[in-house]
Amino acid sequence: MNKIESIKNERIKKWKKLHTKKGRTQANAFLIEGKHLVEEALNASWEIEAILYTEEMDFTFSGETISVTNAVIKELAMTETPQEVIAICKQHPVPERRNADGIFVLLDGVQDPGNVGTIIRTALAANASGIVLGEGTADLYNDKVVRSTQGGLFHIPIFRGDLNDWFDFFAEIKKPVYGTALKHAVPYTEVKTSQAFALVVGNEGVGVQEKWLERTTRNLYIPQNVKAESLNVAVATGILLYALKK
Rank of each mutant, 00 (worst) to 15 (best):
D58N: 01
N219S: 09
I66L: 04
S194P: 04
K227R: 00
L213G: 04
A27R: 00
E96Q: 12
V226A: 12
F197G: 03
K13M: 01
L231M: 10
A181P: 01
I51H: 13
N115A: 13
N9K: 06
N9S: 03
Q224A: 10
E190C: 15
D101T: 13
A228L: 12
T149I: 15
V186A: 02
F170S: 05
V85C: 15
F61C: 02
I7V: 12
G161H: 09
G179F: 00
G238K: 04
E33S: 11
D101I: 05
Q83V: 11
K175S: 00
A243N: 10
A50N: 00
G202W: 07
D112S: 02
E172H: 02
E39N: 13
W46K: 14
L76C: 00
E10Q: 03
E33C: 11
N2L: 06
E10S: 05
E204F: 12
K174N: 08
K17R: 07
K21A: 12
E5M: 10
R215A: 00
Q83M: 13
G207V: 13
N115W: 13
L140F: 15
R98N: 12
T189W: 09
T216D: 12
E84D: 05
N203H: 14
S62H: 14
S194W: 03
I86P: 08
N115Q: 11
Y141S: 06
M57P: 02
E39W: 08
L182V: 07
L133D: 09
